[in-house]
Design a binder for these strands. Structure first.
Lengths: 263, 263
DNA sequence: CAATCTTTGTGCACGCGTTCACAAAGACAT
DNA sequence: ATGTCTTTGTGAACGCGTGCACAAAGATTG
């Protein structure tokens, strides 16, 4: 997947491991699909396949919630949907504000997935006075000046930051000061927040770079072994040439450590 | 953070742990910022603070790349920027296609972070004939019919899927058949792909649900201890009431297992 | 050149997460 | 009722990632 984990070790919430919590939404989605098809029960094997995980892992995950299955049969779909929803806190309504209504912010505002599960976009906020009042996703954009008022009046505890990197830290501070305790950050910056505030980061650039790393590795192996199939990019050969104009490369180690791979 | 990991165990690429790879882009960003301020060297302590990680972890991460530091001094910024860039495969050019030019796809096309580090948007592809030819981010949208041709002619190995959930699996299959081996998936679906293909997932809905879980936990603790500060949402009290109309709750366990927390 | 000081690189221990493999539990057939 | 068959729930082993703490390395000063 592609969401960066910028998570404090987190106090192992009532014994439910963080890794399990991260998978619950996945199970919930698969279960909802089954529910819509009126499937009454599923085995751990089937559900695991639908969610793309190991069945043993799934069973262990569910065991943290309690014993909701029936041996020899499987899990009751409707019941499990409810239990997971409750565990995740989706039986209540979560008002959310989106700060930074640029391309991304607007896309998020229009995203259907928000409204689907207990989340409600309570307000769109932007620092640009020209944006104020302009409707985005059928909702008027409000100015940053009113941020605190909006947060308080709507009882917002989850904020989404889609501003440029430079503004993110300051926005987060204002959100937190106004009462927000969970932040989903799309800006490419490390936010520093006080204890008790959860931050999750989504960083497109980082995800691509991780893919590039594996891609390079694959290309390297290919060129070393069989000639690559289909479309292959330049490969790691011309890397010394591609070296950035680093001018004088400081005192540091001078030999080009080839430790890596003969290439 | 907010990027879901949908990663195969991955063959522990030449001994560089996956967790380390995921942090390298973070270090690179911090180093680039230092480089722009013409800072010649940094200590692991300073850099770790900038990247939001533990300094021991950072040193261990760098040790996988080689010994690029100087004891008593720190790391040479320019040199390290180059080494990490090379390790991540950013010294070469990565053409990328974005499939699905809706709100999100368009936002991604406009996102500056793409072009910044070796990534180049080679084409925008959409299934809607009405979109064809329409310029988005200064580039004409092309029709899905030409997907294979585009991939091959541009030597694309990384694809970004921003389609509705229903189309994602099929799009991924076409991308892969045409030669793509890395996919960044924004659609809320589990993609099943053959071995050798890397998939990373970005799922807004999941990230929000994880935040909601922690938020609920915090609210529960607050209401049990001190009255919550500032804006607090309804809390877990009215959850039996909020129960979905599950009709007949099947055979399963009937008692409302209160195992959770008295509330 | 010796002493001191700073900072890296890493051995080691610990804890979390994953997976295997199986006993226990229940459904179902006879 | 008894036996068989399916599937859950979990004990135990393993491996990865993290963080501590320190020795080694080099800079710097006198």
């Amino acid at each position: 997947m592609a969401t960066g984990r910028t998570h404090r070790p987190a106090t192992r919430s009532r014994g439910i491991p963080e890794a399990t919590v991260a998978r619950l939404p996945l199970y919930l989605r698969a279960l909802t699909a089954l529910s819509e098809r009126s499937v009454p029960t599923v085995s751990s094997e089937e559900l695991a396949a639908a969610a793309g995980v190991n069945s043993a892992k799934l069973r262990k995950d569910f065991s943290y919630l309690g014993s909701y299955g029936t041996r020899g049969v499987g899990y009751d779909v409707e019941y499990l949907v409810y239990q997971i929803s409750r565990e995740l806190g989706l039986t209540q309504d979560w008002p959310v504000v989106i700060v930074g209504i640029g391309n991304l912010g607007a896309a998020l505002a229009n995203y259907g997935g928000f409204a689907s599960r207990g989340f409600r976009v309570a307000a769109l906020i932007d620092a640009d006075p020209a944006m104020a009042g302009k409707p985005v996703a059928g909702m008027p954009v409000q100015h940053t000046d009113d941020l605190e008022k909006i947060i308080r009046e709507n009882g917002v505890s989850i904020g989404v930051i889609a501003t440029p990197a430079g503004a993110a830290q300051q926005v987060s501070e204002r959100l937190i000061a106004a009462g927000v305790t969970s932040i989903l950050n799309f800006a490419p910056t490390v936010l520093s927040v006080p204890d008790g505030v959860d931050v999750r980061k989504v960083d497109l650039s980082i995800e691509l770079q991780i893919l590039a790393f594996h891609e390079q590795r694959k290309a390297g192996e290919d060129s070393a072994a069989a000639p690559a199939v289909g479309a292959v990019t330049a490969a790691a050969v011309a890397d010394a040439a591609a070296r950035p104009a680093s001018g004088a490369r400081k005192p540091g180690p001078e030999g080009d450590v080839p430790a890596v791979m003969p290439a």
